[in-house]
Amino acid sequence: MTECGPWHALRLKKGDDFVDGLRDDFLAPYAVDAPLVHDPTARVLVFRRKS
């Protein structure tokens, strides 16, 4: 997310040291090499031009 995704912009804005400084806290709840599974919910919006 911070290397090739939407949070890469945070690296440009706050610097690599700031983002990398959060890495240990981010990884803390997860077992090393265990699959990281989650179920994010997006929203679908379909609309039509009527006038």
């Binding site: 997310m1 989650h38 039509r48």
Partner: peptide, 30 residues
């Protein structure tokens, strides 16, 4: 909406903000 012709259709998928995406999980944690 305005760039569509009359009768034109848009299909848009987006990530909602905050807990709308997930209450738990790595993105919420981040």
């Amino acid at each position: 909406t305005r760039c569509l012709k009359i009768g034109g259709v848009a299909v848009v998928i987006y990530w909602p903000m905050g807990t709308g995406v997930e209450k738990r999980g790595p993105w919420a944690h981040w």
